[in-house]
Amino acid sequence: MQRTLFRFLTLAALLAPLDGRAELVLVTSQRSGPVELSREQAEKLYLGRSTTLADGTPVKLVDLPNGNTRDDFYLKLTNKNPAQIVAYRSRLVFNGRTTPPLEAASIAEARQWLADTPNLIGYLERTDVTGGMRVLLRLP
């Protein structure tokens, strides 16, 4: 029994990174006020249906460069695949309803922005969170 469990865990550990199942978190700079973020509000923000937090604080969003982490994030938060997200977002952007999230050139750049800029919200793999950031929401 124990051996089976051990094998299963080993297998899970091996598969986890391949599967892109790292834990994702939504973070903001510690310079932001004592803000809170619900999963529902996060979905509204990233789908362009809101530009503020529940308490009315205007926020900006960060996107990671195209890749697994980004795709995984949108799938978990909005249940939309990359093509659906691009189609949905392009309509909002080109009809002037919303400005798209600021796209960082790299994870390192996103980390720097998120640590330094108040009222900026972004998502990272939990292991990429650095000091200067505060975790607002976990997306297991």
Partner: peptide, 11 residues
């Protein structure tokens, strides 16, 4: 270390 204030996109 701050994000840019200008965005260019196209279709």
């Amino acid at each position: 270390n701050e994000p840019p204030r200008f965005a260019l996109s196209g279709f």
